[in-house]
Design a protein around this nucleic acid. Structure first.
Lengths: 184, 184
DNA sequence: CTCCTAAAGCAACGATCCTTGCGTTACGCT
DNA sequence: AGCGTAACGCAAGGATCGTTGCTTTAGGAG
């Protein structure tokens, strides 16, 4: 009647990392949409059944890899200056999606989105809210921008470009967007 | 040695429209990602081979339907007032992607994007350029916004929401975005 | 070290997909 | 109206995918 005891060490860990590595390679090579479970299994030297039993299907597997890569618990920029924080945060996103692998995974996730907010993007919203809210508390005054405006003004353009125009994710996109979002 | 003579009438046309209708129904029901060629064929009362021979694979088929729906030759708003034109154009986009079918097709297209600009989105860029450029010529002065800014400020948020947050495509999103893009 | 069982491997199965060769239909041109 | 061939239908084939029951391996607790 007690919860089953998870086994995280030894073989399981080896299988897990082999699968993750294989997924990353295959997504890079063929794009997220054309990665199948048997392919991953063969590349990882693992039995397909192990993957089916653990993740169920390909989108779940990709989603796991994706959230594994951009750590939801990483520290967020907190200089006390809204402009600087937003710029640093946006630059982080740009840098992340400049890697073809991460962009591919994003595209794969977008295909099955729409019902409820996708995990990796819901985290972006939460982070935006946190940055904005923290400024509000520090200064004890309303933030000049809402979280929704941050989504529309920073996340949306970055994600849009990552999906459809990945070659336009240049180094100073982040600051350009922030300058447009916070005039003067 | 001459180019093969295309046959567009009678049976071919009937098959084509039956397939298009079937695709739209199925995308609406299951989402673009879960639509397979045999499914479409059965729904349309057509042999799968005909589809494989004409389009090759599912993404190509979906892309064809997508570009067929938002007519690239439709008239663009042209009132002479930049703000009004952009607002009308953005509202048109919002209205288009509010239909779950069109949003689904967009998601399907996003999955395979990234290499070169996807057809339906390249058209959006061309339209943005046209609107901005026309204003410049009429007034014989530089437009207050560039086409890229229109992409980042209007298209990106609309498309982002259409893909990931479709339930936030409300009626006055277009004007909100335009107001933010063109202050005062 | 020993026991329990979580997790991985193995094998067989049905389902579905995509291809290919060939016969049939009917569009479009003369 | 008659002809050539583009486009569709049909059927068989191989390939791949995902599931399931069972066996084997090895992690973690006592």
């Amino acid at each position: 009647m007690s919860a089953p005891v998870r086994r995280t060490g030894g073989r399981s860990a080896a299988v897990l990392s082999a699968i993750r590595y294989a997924v990353e390679e295959l997504v890079r090579e063929r794009g997220a949409e054309k990665v199948t479970i048997p392919m991953v299994a063969e590349r990882a030297g693992v039995n397909p059944t192990s993957i089916y039993r653990r993740w169920g299907d390909a989108p779940a597997l990709l989603n796991d890899i994706a959230t594994y890569r951009l750590d939801p618990d990483r520290p967020l920029p907190d200089s006390g200056d809204l402009r600087a924080d937003l710029a640093a945060w946006a630059a982080e996103l740009v840098e992340h999606y400049r890697k073809p692998l991460n962009a591919s995974i994003l595209r794969g996730g977008s295909a099955t989105a729409g019902e409820q907010e996708t995990d990796c993007l819901r985290n972006r919203r939460a982070e935006a809210l946190l940055i904005v809210e923290r400024i509000r508390q520090d200064n004890d005054a309303a933030s000049p921008v809402s979280a929704d405006e941050v989504i529309d003004g920073l996340v949306a353009p970055i994600v849009y470009r990552a999906i459809f125009l990945p070659w336009t994710l240049d180094g100073d996109l982040a600051t350009r967007l922030v300058d447009r979002l916070l005039p003067q």
